[in-house]
Computed example of a mutant assay.
Amino acid sequence: MANLRTVVGSMTLSAAALIGLAVNEGYTETASIPTRNDRPTNGFGSTLKADGTPVKIGEKTDPVRALITLQAHVSKEEAVFQQSLAGASLTQGEYDTYMDWVYQFGTGAWATSSMRRLILAGEYRKACDALLKYRYSGGYDCSVPGNKVCAGVWTRQLRRHQKCIDSQ
């Protein structure tokens, strides 16, 4: 079956991608700082509560509240993401991949990303390849072999890149 492109404004994050996002982020009941120079995070990687206020160190959540917060955050980010790609088309797999990236890096980083520019130019393979530019966390190059500080950041980028290419 062909991976058909659809206008971004008519798309939404798939249920499978939302579950995948939760799995990739992992669940943390008590807010902590997950990686150097990051913000306090709890639930499924949430740095903000459902009402938009920042999570504070030590604050607790539960799995149900964490899922509600995850969905609220994704919905807000998704609206900005869709507006940033007005008139562009993606496959569902590409859409899910880029939304996963947006959840981790934010819509501010997305707005200035080469991925966004390349999608708007119809350069879909180059946009997938641009995912690999995001390999740093807390000042570390996470792609360095043997890295014990943020190797998961690079592993996640490699998975995103492969999913993006496979979705074309």
Rank of each mutant, 00 (worst) to 15 (best):
E77M: 14
G138M: 06
A111V: 05
G45S: 02
A16F: 07
D141F: 00
E59H: 00
L67R: 11
A2G: 05
D166N: 13
Y103A: 06
F44C: 15
P40E: 04
L158C: 06
I119A: 08
H73I: 15
L158N: 08
A86V: 11
L158E: 12
R65A: 15
T6R: 11
S46E: 15
C142P: 10
L4C: 09
C128T: 07
E25N: 07
A127F: 05
Q92Y: 00
Q104S: 11
V153M: 06
A50K: 05
R125K: 14
A130M: 01
T30C: 11
A15Y: 09
N147H: 13
T30K: 12
T112P: 05
I68S: 07
G58D: 03
G122E: 01
Q157T: 12
Q82N: 12
G146E: 06
G20C: 07
T69K: 00
Q104W: 07
L131A: 01
A88V: 02
K49L: 12
G146Y: 00
F81Y: 05
S113Y: 02
M11H: 12
R160W: 05
Y124Q: 09
N37W: 13
G122Q: 03
V8F: 10
G122A: 03
G58Q: 01
C128L: 04
N24T: 15
M99R: 04
L18Y: 02
C150A: 00
A15M: 04
A31T: 04
G43F: 01
S137A: 13
C164H: 04
S167H: 01
R159V: 13
V8N: 06
I19T: 14
H73P: 00
S114F: 01
K148F: 02
A31P: 01
F105Q: 12
G58L: 08
V55P: 14
S89T: 15
A16E: 13
R156C: 05
D100L: 03
G93N: 03
I119K: 04
G52H: 01
Y27L: 00
E25Q: 08
A66Y: 01
L21W: 00
Y124G: 00
K60M: 13
A86W: 09
R135Y: 10
G45R: 01
G87N: 08
S113H: 02
E78M: 10
R36P: 09
I33R: 02
S114T: 13
R156E: 07
R156V: 08
D100V: 02
S75H: 08
C150Y: 00
R135C: 07
T28V: 15
D62I: 04
G87I: 05
Q71I: 13
R160S: 09
E25L: 10
V153H: 08
Y98Q: 06
Y136D: 02
A50Q: 04
V7P: 06
L132P: 08
R159P: 00
G138C: 10
G45M: 02
K126S: 07
I19W: 09
A72P: 00
G52N: 00
Q92G: 04
G93R: 04
I19K: 13
N42G: 12
A130K: 01
G139F: 02
A22Y: 03
V64W: 05
L4H: 09
D51Q: 14
T155A: 15
L18V: 08
F105G: 02
I68F: 10
I119H: 08
A15T: 13
Q168S: 06
Y136N: 09
N24R: 15
S167A: 04
I68Y: 07
T35L: 15
M1I: 13
V55E: 11
D51C: 13
S143F: 11
D100C: 08
G9K: 09
T47K: 07
A111Q: 10
